[in-house]
Computed example of a mutant assay.
Amino acid sequence: MRELVYYAAVTLDGYIAGPNGEFDAFLIEGDHMDGINDRFADTLPTVAAEALGIAQTREVFDTVLMGWNTYQVGGLPSPYSHLRQIVFSRTKTAEAENLEVTAEDPVEVVRRLKQEDGADIWLCGGGALAASLADEIDRLVLKRQPLLFGSGIPLFGERPYRPERFDIVETVAYESGVVFTELKRRREA
Rank of each mutant, 00 (worst) to 15 (best):
D24I: 14
Y71Q: 06
Q145Y: 05
V101Q: 13
N20K: 15
A48V: 09
P160M: 08
E164N: 02
E136R: 08
A25H: 15
D42S: 11
E100I: 14
R90N: 11
R2Q: 13
L83S: 10
M66A: 11
D34F: 12
D117W: 02
D62M: 06
P77R: 15
V179P: 07
E104A: 15
V178G: 04
T57F: 08
G53D: 12
R84K: 13
E50I: 10
R185Y: 09
Y174W: 15
V109L: 08
S176V: 05
I36M: 11
P163Q: 01
I153E: 00
E108W: 00
G75Q: 09
L12P: 06
W122C: 04
A41R: 13
R58L: 14
K143G: 07
P106H: 01
T46Q: 00
S151G: 10
Y6Q: 00
E95H: 06
I54Q: 03
Y174T: 07
I153Q: 05
R185M: 04
A41H: 01
A130K: 04
F166L: 02
A51C: 02
H32I: 00
G150K: 02
D167I: 04
V169L: 13
S89Y: 06
R186T: 13
F156L: 02
D167V: 04
P106I: 06
E22A: 02
D135W: 00
E22L: 10
V141M: 01
D120S: 15
T70L: 01
F26P: 09
G53L: 07
L83I: 06
I54R: 05
V110P: 03
I16P: 00
I153D: 00
N98L: 10
R144L: 07
L65H: 07
L183Y: 07
T181H: 02
L44C: 13
D138A: 12
F149P: 04
E59D: 14
V73N: 02
I121F: 12
D117S: 08
L4M: 07
E97G: 10
G21C: 09
R112D: 02
D120P: 11
Q85G: 08
L83V: 09
T102H: 11
R90E: 10
G127P: 00
L123T: 01
M33T: 15
A119E: 06
P154V: 02
Y71I: 09
D135Y: 01
Y7M: 06
F23H: 13
C124T: 10
L99I: 15
N37T: 05
R144M: 05
P160I: 01
